[in-house]
Write a protein that binds this DNA or RNA. Structure first.
Lengths: 202, 202
DNA sequence: ACGATCTGACACGAGCTAGTGTCAATATGG
DNA sequence: CCATATTGACACTAGCTCGTGTCAGATCGT
């Protein structure tokens, strides 16, 4: 146990630790988002972050803990981007929201891998589920006749899952080069699909 | 090296080996389809199949080889069920085809896990991709103006991926108990989505 | 400059699993 | 009934990775 905590390279002990945590999160996003979770080792993360295991275990007790933190970060960032867009443009014109959300994924294939592919398994299913449920809640808040017909609610939940799956699969296909289109065109099509699938809300 | 191959328990050597292979395939489907690929060990498969490692390596050289064989089997079975239905009912009424395909998955959650979730990673992406491509081909064979407009072809490919993703996600949500509906109702909704998404073909 | 903290590289054992090998018990054909 | 193919249980080594420990050197406060 150190007796006094000194500054190092102009940073306090807390700053240094926070900096290392950021490096580890970035390394985690990179490796989890490219090679995948199961192919990622603690040593790999350390090498990518240019740190040693000592500092990995200073910040996280296991790879899974890092993984959860990475996904939480990514989802929080996405939420922070999308929510204000919804607040300002509403649901009548879903284009700004879809463009923001889908555009973010098309800009970074690591997000596609992490959020669409890897979240189907392991400890991430809970986070995936919670995110989708939150999205459904936000969506249905705008529905005029919510809480009216319980079977309609179930239908809307199914439609939400269906649309989420459609977006995810298209994103995966695009990220792996199987769809030759500009991001704008993809968003066009996904907007059209949204308008055809979603019952009129808001 | 055995000098002569005898019958055992009324079965020839080939029959016994084929029998063991079937047991291993069944065990693989069970474990891969429930606990997942990464959680499945060679010893687990052997225990499930009530065989020893000797017979595992007699039939497969690795877990991955078993996995590929299992998925190939499952896809071949699904294809064998769906193709005649399409041949007899065509695309104007997609209901029989969708009912067959989706019904098969809803009847066996292991298929959902294996085909929708686990095929996103590792050696299975190739099989998933090939299956989807084949489905797209079959679908577009019925299109009246195929090979006409190349950008229309791209659009149709995107729509196919989108619909595949929608079906998969709904199946996953249903398999994990997040959608309370009968299989028939789910098929109803997915048929409606298909008709809304798919441009008029056939 | 000096003592203490901080850092990074690496050593090390524990635990798990793949793949192979051994051996006694069992079933078969002659 | 005997020689042998066949089986199943299990031992065993090798390789990988986790998590911890060690230690010399760099950096800072005084």
């Amino acid at each position: 146990m150190p007796q006094t905590r000194r500054t190092y390279r102009g940073m306090s002990a807390e700053e240094r630790q926070a900096e290392r945590r950021k490096q580890l999160l970035a390394a985690g996003l990179e490796l989890f988002g490219t090679h995948g979770i199961t192919a990622t080792r603690v040593d790999d993360v350390c090498a990518e972050a240019e740190l040693t295991k000592r500092y990995f275990y200073e910040n996280f007790s296991s790879l899974e803990e890092l993984l959860l933190a990475v996904v939480e970060d990514v989802l929080a960032d996405l939420t922070a981007r999308v929510v204000p867009v919804i607040a300002s443009s509403g649901w009548r014109d879903p284009r700004p929201m879809l463009s923001t959300f889908i555009g973010a994924m098309l800009d970074d294939p690591r997000l596609v891998r992490l959020l669409v592919i890897e979240t189907h398994t392991g400890a991430l299913v809970r986070q995936r589920h919670q995110f989708i449920e939150r999205a459904i809640d936000v969506w249905l808040e705008a529905a005029p006749d919510r809480d009216r017909d319980p079977s309609l609610l179930q239908t809307q939940r199914l439609l939400a899952h269906a649309y989420a799956g459609a977006v995810g699969e298209v994103a995966v296909a695009w990220a792996s080069g199987r769809i030759t289109m500009s991001a704008e065109e993809i968003i066009d099509h996904l907007e059209r699909i949204f308008l055809r699938i979603a019952p009129q809300v808001g």
